Computed example of a mutant assay.
Amino acid sequence: METTTTRKHGVPTLSAPTIALFRAALRSGWQDFRAAPAFGLIVAFLCLLAGWGLVGLTAWAGHTFWFVLGVFGFPLVAPFAALGTYEVSRLRGMGEHPSVGRVLRVLWAERGRQLPLLCALMMVMLLFWFFLGHMIFALFLGLKPMTNIMSSASVFLSADGLMMLGLGSVVGAGFALLLYSICVIGLPLLLDREVDYVTAMITSIGFVLSNFMVMLVWAAFIAIVLMIAMLPAFFGLLVVLPWLGHSSWHVYAALRSD
Rank of each mutant, 00 (worst) to 15 (best):
A20P: 00
L69P: 10
G56D: 13
F74Y: 13
T58H: 10
P79L: 08
F131S: 14
G73C: 05
L104E: 08
A59R: 07
G168W: 01
G161Q: 03
R111T: 02
L49T: 13
V239Q: 02
G174M: 06
M135C: 14
L209I: 02
I149C: 00
G112T: 04
F80P: 04
G29H: 04
L231C: 09
F221P: 02
G73N: 06
D258T: 12
L104I: 08
V251N: 05
G10I: 09
A233F: 10
V195N: 09
V103I: 07
P12K: 11
M215C: 15
V124K: 12
W249N: 03
S204F: 01
G70H: 02
M201Y: 01
R105T: 08
A200M: 03
F221C: 05
G101P: 13
A138D: 15
F45S: 14
G29M: 05
M230W: 00
R256F: 04
L69A: 12
A44E: 05
C47W: 02
M94V: 08
F130Q: 12
G236W: 00
S181A: 15
L191E: 09
T58K: 06
P232K: 07
W60C: 03
S152R: 00
H246N: 11
I228W: 05
F212M: 09
L118T: 05
V124D: 08
G168V: 07
M164H: 12
P12W: 03
L83D: 04
M164Y: 14
S152M: 00
P232V: 06
G142A: 06
R102Q: 10
M135I: 15
D196M: 04
G93D: 11
L115T: 10
A81F: 06
C47N: 11
N148T: 04
R90N: 07
P37L: 01
A254R: 12
P242S: 06
R34D: 14
R7V: 04
S181W: 01
S181V: 01
A173G: 12
L167D: 08
I149L: 07
V77N: 12
N148C: 03
G186Y: 03
P17A: 09
F140R: 03
R111E: 08
V100F: 09
F130P: 14
S247I: 11
L49V: 13
F72K: 02
H9P: 06
P98M: 00
A25Q: 08
L179E: 10
L226K: 02
D196R: 10
D32C: 09
S89E: 01
L139Q: 15
M135V: 15
A219I: 05
G186P: 06
D160L: 05
E2S: 11
P116V: 01
A200D: 07
G56H: 14
A38Y: 11
D196T: 08
W52E: 14
A220D: 04
S247T: 09
M1Q: 07
R27Q: 14
I228F: 08
R23N: 10
Y86E: 03
E2Y: 11
A223P: 01
E2L: 10
E194C: 01
L48H: 02
L209K: 13
G53I: 06
H97Q: 11
L107R: 05
E87N: 03
L46C: 13
V88D: 02
H63E: 13
M213G: 03
A20W: 00
A173Y: 12
L76I: 07
H63K: 09
L209M: 09
V68A: 13
F207A: 12
